[in-house]
Simulated assay, not measured.
Amino acid sequence: MPDLSYHLWYLITGLGGPALTLPLAIAIALWLALGYSWRMAAGWLLLLGMAIGVVTVTKLAFLGWGVGVRELDFTGLSGHAMLSTAVYPVALFLMLLPARSKFRLVGVLFGLAAGIAVGMSRVVLSAHSPSEAITGCIVGAVTALLFVRWSWDAEPGRLSAVPVAVSLMMLTVGLHGVHVPTQRWVTHIALKVSGHDRPFIRARWKAGRYDSPSAAPLSQTQNTLAPPVILNNGNV
């Protein structure tokens, strides 16, 4: 890993937060609909939604049922890594869509590098294991590259690159560091669906100290939701 200060790693990891990347994804869809077609916008949201679904399912499976891979220290894909690796290449592709192909390619590669940097930050900050960050980056990269390949030859409409770039950069600056409790929401859903009174936690799961949290009445589950939301496997 590059020898960077923790402050810088925190700045990098903030680029992958859902409070930033999801508004960026919606802004991308709006610009696609305005300057190109609603079909492109819907395709982008569909691909991203599928990737988010994959991340969510892996997290629910671990938190609710302890489904993971101990040998790889895998408890679910990194949402930060997936979102950043999916969103930033597409954002730069959209900005550079009216430009020559080589500039578009450079933009996509730069976006992928930014997403990989976010994935690395999740490992450095002990929010995720390497396997979780790598798989998150892979799913995000596949999502971005599928959309870019599909949209590569799109004919630009009346959309100028300047307002697109300015709006996306303003969102990035304005929402960087904003936090939403996605891990709490996913944990809440996992406990509701599994019927368990507490989620699986990485350290105890790796040590094999328990295999199935005990079930509890719904009222008791509701009363015990607050304490477990700070987990060793970090945020999204």
Rank of each mutant, 00 (worst) to 15 (best):
M1G: 14
P2N: 12
Y6R: 14
H7S: 14
H7W: 06
L8E: 10
W9R: 08
W9M: 08
W9S: 03
I12V: 15
I12Q: 09
G14E: 05
G17A: 11
G17S: 07
P18N: 01
A19E: 01
A19T: 10
A19Q: 03
L20A: 04
L22A: 01
L30E: 03
W31V: 00
W31H: 08
L32Y: 03
L32W: 01
L32N: 02
G35P: 09
W38Q: 13
M40C: 11
M40Y: 12
G43T: 13
W44R: 03
L46V: 13
L47V: 10
M50R: 03
I52C: 10
I52L: 11
I52T: 07
V57T: 03
V57M: 10
T58F: 02
K59S: 01
L60S: 00
G68S: 11
G68C: 08
R70G: 02
R70H: 05
D73I: 01
L77V: 01
S78Y: 07
G79T: 01
G79R: 06
G79K: 05
M82S: 04
S84R: 14
T85A: 10
T85I: 01
A86M: 09
A86H: 09
V87I: 14
V90G: 09
A91T: 05
L92I: 04
R100M: 09
R100E: 15
F103N: 13
L105A: 15
V108S: 13
G111V: 06
G115W: 10
A117M: 15
G119C: 06
G119H: 11
R122F: 05
A133M: 11
I134M: 13
G136L: 04
C137T: 13
C137N: 15
I138Q: 14
G140P: 02
G140I: 10
A144W: 08
A144S: 15
A144V: 12
L145R: 08
F147G: 11
W150F: 11
W150Y: 15
W150S: 14
R158S: 07
A161S: 15
V164D: 05
S167R: 11
M169V: 15
T172L: 11
G174L: 09
V178R: 04
V180Y: 04
W185T: 06
K192G: 01
V193D: 02
S194H: 06
H196K: 12
R198L: 02
R198C: 00
F200N: 00
I201P: 00
R204W: 08
K206Q: 14
G208S: 06
R209Q: 06
D211K: 12
P213H: 10
S214H: 08
S214G: 11
T221I: 15
Q222W: 15
Q222S: 05
T224I: 04
L225I: 09
A226S: 14
P228E: 03
V229C: 11
L231M: 12
N232H: 08
N232D: 07
N233T: 08
N235H: 08
